[in-house]
């Protein structure tokens, strides 16, 4: 599988999305969206429900086909085939976690490292890093939800991805767990991984991201540092204002 791993081009962003449009029938889920994520950078993708955040993830993963635009990972265009993602160094977590419920914690994490010759030691280390080692041989379905989320994260991290896509990583977690998650995301980025995350939890996004991209009705309405975006009136109107009063 390593033969399929394309070498990243020097200086190219880890993820470059240009002019991406996705249509479901007459509805434009994404309309001319461009964004990029560089090495070691954490970029947050926010916006109201239905703004197209998960659709963008799905397009990057090859689960939906764009009607226009291009997606490149490490400067090379991405084949619209989910199976090749792992070989290109892309890992993703899912909103529904997508764990293999009948398998043990260890087996779930091992499944994130299918191409390795000796995945056992990487898996063991990853489990220990996230404090899951004592649960390694339990069926994943027996764990409480926050621990299951950790397993999903471990499965993505164990592949040592070059690009990590996190779909609502803080959803359903308590304050302490969210703080730990923030540290983990920053730590992962510090190793050189590019992180793109979709999240509703505004404080988490503002605290952990280098840059924030705001989507509304499938279009990018603002992007910049957390401070720049938070001060943007268009963002307040479309998203932050609603979220802040709601919470």
């Amino acid at each position: 599988m390593s033969a399929l791993t394309a070498p990243p081009r020097e200086g190219a962003p880890r993820l470059a999305v240009r002019g991406l449009s996705v249509r479901f029938g007459g509805l434009a889920a994404l309309d001319d969206v461009s964004l990029h994520v560089d090495e070691g950078e954490v970029v947050g993708l926010i916006g109201p429900n239905g703004a197209g955040k998960t659709t963008l993830f799905n397009a990057v993963c090859g689960l939906v086909r764009p009607s226009a635009g291009s997606i490149a990972v490490g400067g090379l265009p991405l084949a619209p085939d989910p199976v090749r993602l792992a070989a290109r160094g892309v890992a993703r977590t899912l909103q529904g976690l997508g764990l293999f419920r009948g398998l043990t914690v260890r087996e779930n994490v091992l499944a994130g490292r299918l191409d390795a010759h000796d995945p056992g030691s990487d898996t063991q280390r990853q489990l220990a890093d996230l404090g899951l080692a004592e649960h390694a041989d339990r069926p994943v379905g027996d764990l409480p939800y926050p621990d299951q989320k950790k397993v999903a994260l471990a499965r993505a991290l164990v592949a040592e991805p070059r690009l990590l896509l996190l779909d609502e990583p803080a959803g359903g977690l308590g304050t302490d767990d969210i703080a730990a998650l923030g540290d983990l995301v920053r730590h992962t980025a510090a190793t050189g991984c590019a992180v793109l995350l979709v999240e509703h939890h505004v404080d988490f996004v503002m605290g952990v991201c280098d840059r924030v991209v705001v989507l509304d009705f499938g279009r990018v309405i603002a992007s910049g540092t957390p401070d720049e975006v938070a001060g943007d009136p268009a963002v307040d109107e479309a998203y932050l204002g609603i979220e802040v009063t709601a919470s």
């Binding site: 689960l63 993703r92 009948g102 499944a111 191409d115």
Partner: peptide, 23 residues
């Protein structure tokens, strides 16, 4: 074996398995 793990994973959640590189 890795093949066995892939077969079991694919049986539980085929879509997710594809994302992880299981054919």
């Amino acid at each position: 074996t890795s093949l066995g793990l892939q077969m079991r994973a694919a049986a539980f959640a085929p879509e997710v398995s594809r994302l992880l590189g299981v054919r």
